[in-house]
Design a protein around this nucleic acid. Structure first.
Lengths: 337, 337
DNA sequence: CCTGGCACTCCATGGTTCTAAGTGCTAATT
DNA sequence: AATTAGCACTTAGAACCATGGAGTGCCAGG
């Protein structure tokens, strides 16, 4: 059905359409690409491709345009991820290098990715659940309150205030702090519930109430933060894009962090590049966009995802290269922290 | 020069133009507003208004459109801030009421304001410099590092890690912590540098090095965070607006937090409503937008600003009412925390 | 199976005409 | 002196039309 030449034609159509933003005709194709055949032959191939649903024409007597299915085939079999240029790689290093805390790393990453791809960039904060405890601190505030600070090895800090404890003694807080750190430092956050289970029973009875309150807040802060944070950048690039859907729909979808989180979550293999094309995206407002995403992490521990949102008519090899490269560097930076 | 009727005509022009988005002509004006005069008279007034620069016509034989100067006069003398409806007020309360931590308060505020005004909302995080110290915590991390956590009465938490201290003893950290809290709890952040000045001299000589390091980081965290955080919402509403400038320019300006911070900072009286119309905004990309902003704070302590960005052709009374109301509620919520 | 040739289709472009809305001016009116 | 009615004039935008060009599908010949 699809011999090599037809695939070559499809590849050429995608490449030309992406770069010119105009339906591409048989003559232009035969001219610009060394296909070795005449426009007429190309036309014959085009009808095959159209019958199979890989391309379509906006109207009779116009050139062809790839369909979602066509882009899908292109991404899966006809293209290779384009590595970044040396200059781009240097730009990444110098741009991400200067960051100090997690917020700044994430902020710079999202701007960098937007600039490299000239599209909308999305960066998810590192997941708490995949990191481990670096330190737990308890701070008495006045007589009745205690603040708990949880620091993870990915640089994230969660703090909560625990209220209405009745009178708390400094000593009790001290011993609880020591106990917690002995038990938790170095353990995965996912393991914290287990590690914490039988701690209260090791305390004198009159301290157990406070310990229980602190522990429940601690556990809560782990579970709750499953709704993770996300940062957007490069929305200005939307203005230059032309969606078949309305700009408003896309902006609305992007503003709903929940939507983006779900979409990133659906991305299959967290260690690999994933591409979602057009209607493959489960969200209505984004069915005329494509999303390229990749997981990042420290070593082979996946932490979260980054991605790029753009029109289906996008430079897939280039975008995929940029996303992959930024994800890798981001992992390295986090590991170095 | 400008008698009452001419002002009434200007007011009518602004109101009609804002609601219809079409240049308004003399006949429509005389019909829809009870001006008590004929279209011909209105026309005569219009030439006066045009000579004075308050209105302009897109082309000969079109209706009139307010200029920036016209909007300015309208805002200053011809309109009154429109109070919110009872329903809207209830919406604010229920929407902001459920928030728990500062991030959530700010996040909800920005969405609320965007929804009320159907424009782009901007909320600035409460300034550190106008709040006071609630607690300072020092946490030894390993043998060489100390983490400093600064908690303010506005719920903000700053934490820094101080590195390369050489060996630190728990005792030294303890005594420094106590000293800091004795000296600082309750003082304005702006006063911290003074309050801290002669603390090192009260310590035994061998602890002074560490104290100095901690203090310098503490002071740094106060100064540095002058670059305050900002949150945007309702950018989807941009799609429905029509700027004379390109959408891209506006999006770019909005993405530059620095630009927004500067603009908010320029807003004159922090306790009052401020309106910047069109070219009054010092930023290029926003010269076809208007910005309505208000300060918020606890009691009469101003903390930061919130605002709304929209086309110059906006419903000023309504927008101003919404911004003012949200700013007030935000202050109340923060005070209650 | 490929290719040149050809008739056909359709969009985009540019020019023309027409209309509706609104103006500015003048002369009459209050 | 201010207001109004009447009227000629201007202009953007819609509607309409003709034209050119790019591209197609198909057929017959290599």
């Amino acid at each position: 059905m699809l011999d090599d030449r037809k695939l070559a034609v499809l590849r050429a159509i995608v490449e030309d359409y992406v770069s010119t933003n105009e339906p591409v005709g048989s003559k232009a194709l035969a001219d610009r690409h060394a296909l070795g055949v005449s426009p007429a032959t190309v036309r014959n191939d085009m009808v095959s491709l159209e019958e199979e649903g890989y391309i379509t024409q906006p109207h009779t007597s116009a050139g062809r345009v790839p369909t979602d299915k066509g882009y899908r085939l292109f991404v899966d079999r006809l293209s290779t991820v384009k590595p970044l240029s040396a200059a781009e790689r240097r730009a990444i290093e110098s741009f991400l290098g200067g960051a100090v805390d997690l917020d700044e790393i994430v902020g710079r990453t999202v701007r960098l990715l937007a600039q490299l791809t000239r599209q909308v960039a999305v960066v998810q904060y590192p997941s708490l659940t995949r990191s481990s405890v670096q330190h737990v601190e308890l701070v008495p505030l006045g007589q009745q309150r205690v603040m708990m600070v949880l620091i993870t090895d990915t640089g994230r800090v969660e703090q909560r205030v625990i209220d209405n404890l009745g009178a708390v003694s400094e000593d009790a807080v001290d011993s609880l702090r020591q106990m917690l750190n002995r038990a938790l430092v170095g353990t995965w956050l996912t393991e914290v519930p287990n590690a914490v289970e039988d701690l209260p029973s090791q305390l004198p009875p009159d301290e157990r109430a406070m310990a229980a309150a602190v522990l429940s807040v601690l556990l809560e802060s782990l579970v709750e933060r499953h709704d993770e944070k996300i940062v957007l950048g490069g929305t200005a690039n939307l203005a230059a894009m032309d969606f078949s859907a309305s700009l408003r729909e896309v902006l609305e979808a992007l503003e709903e962090n929940v939507v983006l989180l779900r979409l990133l979550g659906e991305m299959s293999d967290p260690s690999m590049l994933t591409v979602r094309i057009g209607a493959e995206n489960s969200h209505e407002g984004l069915r005329s966009t494509s999303i390229v995403s990749a997981g990042y992490g420290i070593g082979d521990q996946p932490l979260a995802k980054i991605g790029v949102v753009g029109p289906t008519r996008m430079d897939y090899p280039g975008t995929m290269g940029a996303v992959r490269a930024v994800a890798r560097y981001l992992g390295q930076i986090l590991a170095g922290q």
